[in-house]
């Protein structure tokens, strides 16, 4: 049973978003990290890069596979989680706290309305 915090929003691509004013923190969900297996490498954009909703902005790799990270909303990277360079396994052990990926400054806040809430994300997983 995957953990789905009620205070977050979710994308169809199994990323979570924590909204804080015009900034959002982005990570991958508990379901996604479990499906990937042990994360051994994370490639993230540098601060100042712009990302487009639905477009790949980075990669997360397990021992066996590579997955693109898709931006849940458009915006500019304000910060990336530098601790993942040395400790990518934080994505597994703490997907919603220490394993966050990037902080974005959102260019169009209305795009956040298109994300799922926790119940909607649970239904997405139930349907899978």
């Amino acid at each position: 049973m995957s953990e789905i915090p009620a205070d977050l929003r979710y994308s169809q691509d199994h990323e979570w978003v924590r909204v804080d004013g015009d900034r959002v923190t982005v990570g991958i969900t508990d379901y996604a990290q479990d499906a990937l297996g042990d994360v051994v490498f994370v490639d993230l954009p540098e601060a100042g890069s712009s990302v487009q909703a639905g477009q790949a902005f980075g990669e997360v790799e397990s021992t066996k596979s590579v997955s693109d990270l898709y931006a849940p909303v458009s915006g500019t990277v304000v910060e990336r989680n530098a601790s993942l360079e040395a400790n990518p396994e934080l994505v597994n052990s703490s997907p919603y706290v220490q394993g966050w990926l990037v902080v974005l400054e959102v260019s169009d806040a209305s795009a956040l309305d298109e994300l799922l809430d926790a119940d909607g994300y649970q239904r997405l997983l139930d349907a899978a």
Binding site: G37, D38, V40, T63
Partner: peptide
Amino acid sequence: ARMADFAGWAMPLDHGSVVA
């Protein structure tokens, strides 16, 4: 265990963590 088709056999890829 995470199972997969390996050469026509149902085999475990991992029992929770490849790295562990």
